[in-house]
Simulated scan of single mutants.
Amino acid sequence: MLKAAILLLLLAILISLFSALFFMVKDQGHGRRMMYALYVRVGLAALTVSLIAWGFYSGHLQPHVTW
């Protein structure tokens, strides 16, 4: 369940990033919609990082590295 939530947040980050690109092209740098979309992306990224940290802290996520 936690991995699905992280995956959905990463997908939402990509959607927000491409919507900011769309607003940048459409508004030609004169609107504030691009800035708001990037604010949403930063908030989603912070939420994703905190969810990953909580997953490692609680034991729901385990590292599988060989080194």
Rank of each mutant, 00 (worst) to 15 (best):
M1C: 06
M1Y: 03
M1Q: 07
M1L: 09
L2D: 05
L2Y: 03
K3Q: 11
K3D: 10
K3F: 08
A4Y: 04
A5T: 09
I6Q: 02
L7S: 14
L7E: 14
L7I: 13
L8M: 11
L8G: 05
L9G: 06
L9R: 04
L10Y: 11
L10A: 15
L11C: 10
L11P: 00
L11D: 09
L11T: 12
A12T: 03
A12H: 03
I13D: 04
I13H: 01
I13Y: 02
L14P: 01
I15P: 00
S16C: 11
L17G: 09
L17E: 14
L17V: 10
L17H: 15
L17I: 14
L17K: 14
F18C: 06
F18K: 05
F18Q: 10
F18P: 00
S19Y: 07
S19V: 08
A20V: 01
A20W: 00
L21H: 02
F22A: 10
F22H: 09
F22V: 08
F23P: 00
M24V: 07
V25M: 11
V25K: 14
V25H: 09
K26N: 05
K26V: 06
K26Q: 04
D27A: 07
D27P: 01
D27Q: 09
D27M: 01
D27K: 04
Q28N: 15
G29L: 05
G29S: 03
G29C: 03
G29Q: 02
G29F: 05
H30N: 09
H30Q: 13
G31A: 08
G31Q: 05
G31P: 01
R32F: 07
R33I: 08
M34D: 01
M34W: 03
M35C: 07
M35V: 14
M35A: 12
M35L: 15
Y36E: 12
A37D: 06
A37N: 07
L38K: 02
L38P: 01
L38N: 01
L38Y: 04
L38D: 00
L38R: 06
L38V: 07
Y39A: 09
Y39C: 09
Y39W: 11
V40E: 12
V40P: 00
V40T: 14
R41E: 12
R41I: 05
R41G: 08
R41Y: 08
V42F: 13
L44P: 00
A45P: 01
A46L: 15
L47P: 02
L47N: 02
L47H: 01
L47C: 13
L47I: 11
T48V: 11
T48M: 10
T48S: 13
V49I: 15
L51I: 11
L51R: 05
I52M: 13
I52K: 02
I52S: 03
A53H: 09
A53V: 13
A53Y: 08
A53K: 08
W54S: 13
W54E: 11
F56C: 03
Y57A: 15
Y57L: 15
Y57C: 12
Y57S: 14
S58P: 02
S58C: 11
S58L: 06
G59I: 04
G59H: 05
G59T: 07
H60L: 12
H60I: 06
L61I: 10
Q62P: 02
Q62W: 05
Q62A: 14
P63Y: 01
P63T: 02
H64D: 08
H64R: 11
T66R: 13
W67T: 10
